[in-house]
Amino acid sequence: MDKKKVVIITGSGSGMGRATAKRFANDGYKVVLNGRTKSKLEKVSEEIGKENCLIVQGDISKPEDVENLINTTIKEFGRLDVLVNNAGVFAGGTIDQVSLEDFNNVFAINVTGNFLTIKTALPHLEKTKGSIVNVSSVSGMGGDWGAFAYDATKGALNQMTKALALDFAPKGIRVNAVAPSLTDTEMGEGAMEDDDTMKEFKKRIAMGRAGKPEEVADVIAFLASDNARFVTGSIIPVDGGLTASNGQPRL
């Protein structure tokens, strides 16, 4: 049985998940790629080398898919050291515009899906004294206009991260989260392609640009590593200084 450390990355077919998969592969991990679209996962597998990874297609909002993800990982590699909960969806609109179906769907992926992956992976992470890194958002640290449902899921994920860190510390498992702002991913495409929107973002982001997926992946890798061995329950903004401001305009 291969003794290399093993990481599961949900939503690893594109964006931050793809960048995180590449980073962990470069760090010598065996990488389990998970997502709903097999063709995207296969492309990432080719990029990082098929010998370094395992594809387990599935939807984390479905308990049977999560069971298959964890069981297949253990059957193939015999261990689990890191769980990166990256899968997420966005639902925009004010409350009068968002349907119950859309509201339930965003919670099913962004909150319930993470509950399922963590709960199912827990016995295996206990054995390795492993680490969990949740991909949250600055939208969970303050409100956005027209995104109440998405913001609510990320706020819930932040509180889940902190509470689980308390519960899991005696087990030797650390739980942290990253909170990106606008990042150059599929989810951020609409904003980045609109000049007026980007002008407004640049007013708020101290570093004056969107983040890169690799910059988020680097922080995820740090939190999962022994370099962060005394860090748990933390929500780390990866936002170019956006949350450093109190919201008042530049004078």
Rank of each mutant, 00 (worst) to 15 (best):
L100S: 15
D102L: 13
K40Y: 11
L251C: 01
D226S: 06
N176K: 09
D102Y: 05
H124R: 05
M192C: 09
G49P: 00
G11W: 08
E200A: 15
K38A: 12
G28C: 07
K62V: 13
I70R: 05
T243P: 02
N52P: 00
T112A: 06
S45L: 01
G28V: 06
S14E: 14
P170M: 00
L41T: 10
T72Y: 03
V89Y: 09
E64K: 15
D144I: 03
I173S: 03
S234Q: 14
V106C: 11
K40M: 13
R204V: 10
E42W: 04
K199L: 14
K127L: 10
G13C: 07
D2M: 04
K4L: 10
V111R: 05
G208D: 13
G211L: 10
A149I: 13
R250I: 11
A21T: 04
P213A: 10
L100P: 09
K127W: 01
I205L: 12
E101N: 14
E200T: 15
A87N: 13
K30F: 11
F148H: 15
M198D: 01
Q159M: 10
D226T: 03
L166C: 08
G93C: 09
P170S: 00
E186T: 10
E67P: 01
K212V: 02
K203V: 09
E126V: 03
L54N: 01
V138R: 04
A163Q: 15
M16E: 05
K62F: 06
A169L: 02
F107T: 07
I8G: 03
N104Q: 14
M192Y: 07
K40D: 14
I118M: 09
I74F: 10
L33C: 12
G211E: 06
I220T: 01
L41M: 12
I95F: 08
N86H: 11
L242S: 04
S245E: 05
L122V: 02
S136D: 03
V138M: 06
G49W: 00
K4S: 14
N176Y: 04
E47D: 07
I74N: 07
I236C: 10
D151P: 08
V44Y: 01
